[in-house]
């Protein structure tokens, strides 16, 4: 069964830029896929369209076999609950506590906002938040303000928030791009461990080809809004990857 299905998705911005040109791929449940491509290749646009932050100009997207392409906000909400996201810049509420940030992961489960706030959360939610923080190794920092943590720790808090949400499909948009190599690797290892342990599906945008080769079972490469590479790690060579990133430049150098 497919967790995610992208059919001929095209995205044209109001200024006429074609960011995605008839992109299609399917991701099976439990698959770990890395999406690669240089800046402007359409990766982030693809991410935003799957996440529902933008609507495709043409084509359709299915999450757990349900079409989300033209869903309104309220109908998308229950699907969002199953879609966990990790962002490049963590997107924590930086002036609130780590614990509070993790509690917010449960927002989709409660109609009353107060149920996910530190003073009013149920004992169950409070315990769940602590165990999510323990899982990412930050339980001892629960009471700290989020912006007092290092970049790597903040990304781990964001992962704990995502764990709190208990999703099925993870979308990660360059989760290690703003971290140093060591912290980046630790975050990637943690994220992948959790994803494997829970058998979640993951679509992760990355820039680092070496990390992509190490973690992704399958790699999809985008160039100028089109899929130019799609296959399991075993079938993709380093040359394929370097072509994906340097192809244009090489051609320019030769001309």
């Amino acid at each position: 069964m497919n967790a995610l299905e992208v059919n001929n998705v095209t995205k044209i911005f109001p200024d006429g830029t074609k960011a995605l040109n008839s992109v299609s791929f399917e991701i099976k449940r439990g698959e770990g896929v890395v999406l690669l491509g240089h800046n402007g290749s359409g990766k982030s646009t693809m991410f935003k369209n799957i996440a529902g932050f933008e609507k495709p100009s043409d084509g359709s997207i299915f999450i757990n076999n349900k079409e989300i392409t033209q869903l309104g906000k309220s109908k998308f909400k229950p699907i969002r609950k199953k879609l966990g996201m990790v962002f490049q810049n963590f997107h924590l509420i930086y002036n609130l506590s780590v614990f509070q940030n993790v509690l917010f992961g449960r927002m989709g489960y409660h109609r009353n906002f107060l149920s996910v706030t530190t003073p009013f959360a149920s004992a169950e939610n409070r315990e769940r938040a602590m165990s999510c923080l323990e899982r990412v190794g930050l339980a001892h920092l629960a009471g700290r303000r989020a912006d007092q943590l290092s970049g790597g720790q903040q990304q781990r808090v964001a992962i704990a928030r995502m764990l709190m949400q208990d999703p099925e499909i993870i979308l990660a948009d360059e989760p290690i791009a703003s971290l140093d190599p060591k912290a980046g690797r630790e975050v990637m290892e943690l994220l992948w461990e959790i994803v494997e342990e829970k058998s979640w599906t993951v679509l992760c945008i990355l820039h680092q080809t070496d990390i992509a080769m190490e973690f992704g079972e399958r790699l999809i490469g985008l160039n100028k809004g089109e899929v130019v590479l799609d296959g399991s790690k075993k079938t993709i060579s380093k040359k394929d990857l370097s072509n994906l990133y340097y192809h244009d430049e090489l051609r320019m150098k030769h001309s």
């Binding site: 932050f53 996201m85 930086y94 989709g108 906002f113 949400q165």
Partner: peptide
């Protein structure tokens, strides 16, 4: 960003405004 992060957890508009 932070609003989108809360939106992605399935939060309502009130939740996004009060939380982020």
């Amino acid at each position: 960003g932070p609003s989108q992060a809360l939106q992605s957890t399935g939060a309502s508009q009130i939740g996004i405004v009060s939380g982020a």
